[in-house]
Amino acid sequence: MNIKNGKELVRRCKEEGLSIGEFILKQEMEESGLSREEIYDRMLDNLRVMAFSTTKGVGEKVISVSGLIGGDAYRLGKYLESGKSVTGRTMVKAMSYALSCSEVNASMGKIVACPTAGACGILPAVIMTMKEEHQVEEKDLVMGLFASAGIGAIIAQNATISGAEGGCQAECGSAAAMAAAAVVEIMGGTPDMCLHAGAIVFKNTLGLVCDPIGGLVEVPCAKRNAAGAVSAMTAADMVLAGVQSRIPFDDTVTAMYSVGKLMPEALRETGIGGLAGTKTGKKLKKEIFGDKDGKSKNKMNDDTFDAEKTGE
């Protein structure tokens, strides 16, 4: 994408009278040489994978290969049916969908890495919740995904989307910023409003470390996906109500990157510090990868494990 930053993206969208989604689709056509229909259909395929991964874990208990996570999306789905939720139907559904994606990912199922596998639940959960709770048409969902792709590209160009480089703020933070922008686009917000939503998300996730137990993208990653989905939707609501970020989107991306560089290695996906370094974190790692004699107590080291059994 030949756009340097968010400020330029907004300017170009205004000049051409396009939403971010339409502008990114046009850019992709110019750069790839593919037709609008071909590019649209590819994004539609992504949407269909998202539909699968967000609902599989809600309809049945999906357990990760390690056994660390599983069944939480199903539990939230049942809780939603009770009608007793504190935060309401929309938020609980988004959380359950985000957890489902994380569980499908950890069980070797098919997901869309948006922008990474570790943050794969946030954008799909928000998009599918918008479809069901606000009766958003398929074409509008697809354009929301194009808008999110544009935001993600800007983040990747100017900072990082890697937890190993920038902590979880770079993964779940970026995914939530992308999702917030997608919601604003879907709800008819301007390109400038989309970036305000992304900026608010980054301000609220700044400094989030990446500390997976045993180095696996499961704990605390799955629940951070649920929190990221909620963060995206609340940021979108604020912006749609007229709230703006005093710190521009591009500055929040710069801040995220600088904070990531300041993080010690132990807090950047190494499975050493943070929650991974706690007594319980170390115990769980030992249970997954083997006892002191190196004998595995878990199917993570079972050569007979068949990924197809937990796939789509």
Score class of each variant (00 low, 15 high):
V104R: 06
H134P: 00
L25T: 01
T254I: 11
E15W: 03
V112G: 00
Q135K: 15
K282V: 06
P248Q: 12
T55Q: 09
T310G: 15
I127L: 13
R268D: 02
E37D: 12
V86H: 04
E308G: 06
G167T: 07
A176C: 04
F289K: 08
N5G: 01
L25M: 15
P212N: 13
S96I: 03
C172D: 05
F146A: 13
L141H: 07
E287T: 00
V209P: 00
G144H: 14
A197L: 11
A235F: 02
E37S: 09
R246N: 08
M256H: 02
Y97E: 05
G118T: 07
L284S: 05
E103I: 03
C194W: 04
T304K: 14
F249E: 06
E22D: 14
T116D: 07
Y257C: 04
A176R: 03
L262C: 08
D251P: 00
V243C: 09
K26F: 02
E16Q: 09
S148F: 07
A236P: 00
V217I: 15
K110F: 01
L47V: 05
A276W: 11
T304A: 14
D291T: 06
Q135Y: 13
H196D: 15
D250Y: 06
R48S: 07
A73I: 07
G294R: 10
P212E: 14
N158M: 07
A266F: 01
L68G: 00
A182H: 05
V230S: 03
C120R: 11
A181F: 05
I247N: 03
K261A: 01
M300H: 05
A164M: 13
G242L: 09
H196T: 08
I247V: 15
L47T: 03
C168D: 11
Q157A: 14
T160C: 05
S100R: 08
T190R: 14
M43K: 09
A51M: 12
I24V: 15
V104D: 10
G88Q: 07
G166E: 12
E138C: 00
M91H: 04
V142Y: 11
V10R: 05
E15Q: 11
D211L: 10
V239S: 02
V65I: 15
R42E: 13
G188D: 13
D41V: 07
A149S: 14
D291W: 06
G260E: 12
V10L: 08
E287K: 09
I288L: 09
P124A: 14
T310A: 14
A156W: 10
A180M: 07
G274Y: 12
